[in-house]
């Protein structure tokens, strides 16, 4: 069992990532480009979501050797994904001392009912959530960071926006409830009263909340930050674009000065080709529907 302070320390690491951009990388070279461009952390994976989507089939945890190569290449935190419910993959990632595990709907789920009992682990977990109920259920299971479940590999921001707005609306609603109404809300959300009480009292999640899925431009990043994200994951948006280093650096600056439209206008110039997007209506597989 983890020592007493471990969960606090894991939430603290997420606090250090705030105002930062976490970038998907598939090689040590890409990791170095991301770090030099100002990534606050990298997500090591064999295939970026756009390619996972294109290839189809079962998608699994990456080769530990490939992840270790990326750990050796950079000094910033390294994250990696395991399948929803696949606690053995998570054990392997913990064994190689990953800094954060993403129990991710981008990979094929290993369990269609149960998520990983993340309280049993010493390493921190980030999980996706479409709404407040999902977020609090993942936190109950031990997640120390939450992100939106925007549709990965599409370059389409619409779902991430939907999730962030819904989360904010639900938090605002809980904050306005009478104390005696919180018990029923906890029942409806299928979470403990203590978590609902926390959201009611603090008007926020008890952990850091990032935007993820579909971020492709500095403007997308600024949009999510203005909607209340505390930082941004960028997956396929960088290394599927024409000039990854320049685009990555521009997104990093847009996250820091997300309300300065003049600066973001300048940052958005000459970025080269953005990743080719797919609209929501054109995709067969909605990954956000994995794991509730």
């Amino acid at each position: 069992m983890p020592e007493q302070n471990r969960y606090e320390l894991n939430k603290n690491l997420a606090q250090m990532l705030k105002g930062g951009v976490i970038m998907d990388v598939t090689t040590p070279e890409q990791a170095k480009i991301a770090e030099a461009a100002g990534a606050a952390a990298v997500m090591a994976l064999e295939r970026i979501p756009a390619d996972i989507r294109a290839a189809g089939g079962v998608s699994r945890m990456s080769d530990p050797k490939m992840i270790k190569g990326i750990q050796d290449a950079v000094s910033i935190p390294v994250m990696a994904k395991c399948r929803i419910g696949h606690f053995a993959e998570a054990q392997i990632l913990q064994a190689i001392e990953i800094d954060y595990i993403d129990e991710s709907e981008v990979l094929s789920p290993a369990d269609d009912v149960f998520h990983i009992n993340k309280r049993e682990f010493n390493v921190p977990f980030v999980c996706g959530a479409k709404d407040l109920g999902e977020a609090l259920r993942r936190i109950e299971e031990g997640a120390s960071m939450i992100r939106t479940k925007g549709e990965p590999g599409t370059g389409d921001i619409v779902q991430a926006v939907r999730h962030m707005r819904l989360m904010n609306q639900e938090i605002a609603r809980i904050s306005s409830l009478r104390e005696d109404e919180l018990f029923n809300r906890a029942k409806e959300l299928q979470v403990s009263y203590d978590l609902v009480r926390y959201v009611h009292d603090h008007k926020k999640l008890p952990v850091v909340n990032f935007a993820a899925g579909g971020v492709a431009t500095p403007a997308d990043a600024a949009l999510m930050m203005q909607l209340g994200a505390e930082g941004v994951f960028v997956g396929s948006g960088i290394f599927k674009s024409g000039n990854p280093a320049k685009r990555a650096a521009a997104i990093v600056q847009a996250v820091t000065n997300y309300t300065d439209a003049k600066l973001i206008a300048k940052l958005s110039e000459d970025l080269g080709e953005a990743m080719v997007g797919i609209n929501e209506q054109e995709i067969a597989l909605l990954m956000a529907e994995r794991g509730k």
């Binding site: 990532l17 930062g20 030099a36 990534a39 606050a40």
Partner: peptide, 15 residues
């Protein structure tokens, strides 16, 4: 503050 020094160092220069 705390955070990632490589990121902060780069942004200090860029900005």
């Amino acid at each position: 503050p705390g955070g990632e020094s490589t990121v902060q160092g780069k942004l200090l220069c860029d900005l």
